[in-house]
Amino acid sequence: MIRTLKSIKGDIFLQFKYGFYLVYTIVTIMYIFLLNFLPEEALIVIVPFIIFSDPSVLGFFFISGLVLLEKGEGVLEYLIITPLQVKEYIISKLVSLTFLSLITSIIIEFFSFGKNINYPIFLVGITLTSFLFILIGFIAVSRFPTINKYLLSSVGYIIVLCLPLIGYFGIFKSRLFYLFPTQASLLLISGAFKGIDTWQLIYSILYLLVWIAATFKIANISFYKYIILKKGDN
């Protein structure tokens, strides 16, 4: 537990040094600036979408960036021979990146929408979505040694995960979207703004938790297979 906390502190420090906080300050300011031009009736659709995309993009691409950086510098090879365990390493990444996600989402919501929303649902939605995308991002990136090889496959992951957005924007409605964990994310985040049915709330939280548990397990296996044993790197 102490080791995990120290690792989280270290990870936040590293992410700060790598410029993640700077990049996100700029992105957040841009979002707020652009959202100010939208009419109020559009905000209720667009702000939840931006808030959804924020932890997902942040989680997915920043975890990939971090892992590729750590692979490039060889530090992952070193971390393996310290007492830090694989699960502690992953938890540390989950917490540190989600922390950044929560801060930016709260700031964006406050300065763009600004009205009273259901904050508990909002925070749960962002946290679970962030966990999900970080874990999937980790699984996606673990087998690749460099960014070029990784980028192509990353597009595939993002497209599949974002399919429920078609339903969200009302282009095409289908119950099949409920099979995607991101449907649950969208329900929670938009639910914080415009309300959510109890069954949807229960479905969303439980379904995301199931996905997070499963991807956490797969991420641990991927770490062992592709980073410790280095299968697939050559």
């Binding site: 120290k6 690792s7 502190k9 420090f13 590293l14 040094k17 060889g74």
Partner: peptide
Amino acid sequence: FELPNLYHKLTALENLDFVKSFY
């Protein structure tokens, strides 16, 4: 290891203190 594996964005002292915290 044969090839150095260090955090390039951190200073030497930060590199040592960072991994030290795991022990």
